[in-house]
Design a protein around this nucleic acid. Structure first.
Lengths: 143, 143
DNA sequence: GCTCAGTTGACAATCATTCTCAATCGATTG
DNA sequence: CAATCGATTGAGAATGATTGTCAACTGAGC
């Protein structure tokens, strides 16, 4: 069919891959929901295994990638480069993460978005994207 | 050597690791300087090897870490989690990177810094840090 | 129940990065 | 200049996250 080659259109294509809601996928989604904050694939897999749910590590990775692609979860990277995932609201936002306990707050920054576009335009860059994460120590970990 | 006069340190750790400017370290620094933009450790090592400079991969990593710690280079991560390094000015700033050719512009964002602090305070987070990178397509890569 | 594409899991394979440790280098002292 | 001793290096092994492989399995529809 029409060769959709839009690089930044990760929506449903002509080839609609039937995503089957399997037991494993549900398990991963639930684990993700039960944690409130960001977890690595390994942690999620560990948690599932502990709980008796037998889900393969590869499947956890695959599922997280699916969820991430579909926008149901946010993926970001720790300073060590490890990917961590979290169930998220669909709107564009950023995170304020406690570097001690992992407590996460979603924040929006219209100002930042605006600034981003302005800078990009100023330098002639198009199709702009940005990553912005805040790390700090939350009140209960401050002491 | 007698402990006649131990380093007039302040207790246990003298915390003054003598950083010797060796041939290898100079080579890495020069490679970094010759590239203008962000490069991975592997790329830097490859470039050195090609050029005939025999520097071990581990040494490249160690050196980059040193430089990164001392603030002489900036390290950030690609979306795949790979660390990339670039010689940078010492002031706090962010990067606008072309996702095609890697052309990089350093940008400052006082507004963002302010916003960051405000958000952190609002949520009771202390000792705030943030990562912010912009990715786009630069004029010459924009077709 | 039967079929078939989507899915899974065990494990091998990748790949960046770090670790190990003996050999080497370099500044310093005698 | 030569001995000394810790910092540094390099080759390769080790680690750890992530991805690929592929035969076995599962579930929706017939």
């Amino acid at each position: 069919m029409t060769s959709t080659d839009a690089p930044h259109a990760h929506g449903r294509e002509a080839t609609t891959p039937p995503v089957r809601p399997t037991k494993q996928r549900r398990a991963v989604a639930e684990a993700l929901a039960s944690f409130g904050d960001f977890r690595s694939a390994q942690e999620i897999h560990g948690s599932l295994t502990e709980r008796g749910e037998k889900v393969g590590l590869a499947t956890v990775y695959r599922t997280l990638q699916l969820l991430s692609d579909s926008g149901e979860v946010d993926m970001l990277r720790t300073e060590e480069g490890e990917a961590i995932y979290r169930r998220c609201s669909a709107t564009h936002h950023h995170h304020l993460v406690c570097r001690q306990c992992g407590a996460t707050v979603e924040v929006e920054g219209p100002a930042v978005e605006r600034w981003t576009r302005a800078i990009a335009a100023e330098h002639g860059y198009a199709d702009i994207a940005h990553t912005l994460e805040l790390f700090g120590t939350c009140r209960s970990c401050a002491v």
